[in-house]
């Protein structure tokens, strides 16, 4: 099964937030969005455009952290969320190195992107990609997207964010600025040759359920990793 990625060319994103609104209508989460809880949202900053959204990690810390198996990784690479299973413990909020999932105190559930799994499954584009008026968002097979991102980076002297961060993500951003100037977090970068955790859905669900009792503190683990990395 193919796994997919999204490329954001922030050099042509005008910050219109059409992706934001399409996401809301597609997933009918008007109530959360009215409280400022978005699955994806764009901010216009002095330095440029910043998208706040799930980075679709290849090795998602949120999935690992969820004690209820409410988060699973799909065969397409996106992280699926089962609101019925979610107990609102916010472990995923805590675990995400990018600070993306948001807790909705009204419903005691999480607001997060699933890369429009329902559309992708049927061969469609994620809603945000489909709507983008300037085609700044591009969706495709992971390797093709990575190749395109790398090519553009070299040709146009751009910066890349998401390719290596947190072990590699499926949401990759091309930008003129240094990511830190736009406030992107400087998360731990891990080796690229680590095989992607493209476990199929049932397996992943089993793993998540099985892993309930051995739920570990993701943050502590990351800190240890970082320490190990900085030790020569």
């Amino acid at each position: 099964m193919k796994n997919y990625a999204i490329l954001l060319d922030a050099t042509i994103c005008t910050g219109c937030n059409s992706c934001t609104y399409k996401c809301i209508q597609e997933n009918r989460f008007h109530a959360q969005a009215s409280q400022g809880l978005f699955r994806t949202v764009v901010e216009i900053k002095d330095e440029g455009i910043r998208h706040y959204r799930c980075m679709i990690c290849k090795d998602p810390a949120c999935v690992e952290a969820c004690p209820e198996g409410a988060l699973t990784q799909s065969e397409y690479g996106s992280v699926l969320y089962d609101a019925n299973a979610c107990v609102g413990c916010e472990a995923c909020v805590d675990a995400c190195p990018f600070g993306v999932p948001q807790y909705d105190p009204m419903t005691q559930k999480i607001v997060r992107c699933n890369m429009c799994a329902h559309r992708v499954k049927d061969g469609g584009l994620p809603a945000c990609v489909e709507v983008c008026p300037s085609d700044a968002l591009c969706f495709g097979e992971y390797n093709a997207i990575v190749a395109l991102a790398k090519k553009r980076t070299i040709e146009e002297h751009l910066n890349l964010y998401g390719l290596t961060e947190a072990g590699g993500c499926r949401f990759i951003t091309l930008m003129k600025q240094a990511p830190a100037d736009l406030g992107y977090p400087n998360v731990v970068q891990r080796a690229q040759n680590k095989p992607a955790m493209d476990v199929t859905l049932p397996g992943m669900a089993a793993l998540a359920i099985g892993g309930f009792k051995t739920f570990s503190n993701r943050r502590a683990r990351l800190e240890t990793e970082e320490k190990e990395k900085s030790t020569p």
């Binding site: 219109c16 937030n17 059409s18 934001t20 609104y21 209508q25 489909e130 709507v131 008026p133």
Partner: peptide
């Protein structure tokens, strides 16, 4: 519920924006 583009339209070429939605 939402909008969907009309590709035949030479102006929008299947695109639309947040205001339309």
């Amino acid at each position: 519920i939402t909008l969907e583009g009309r590709k035949k339209d030479p102006v929008s070429r299947g695109k639309y924006c947040i205001k339309g939605m």
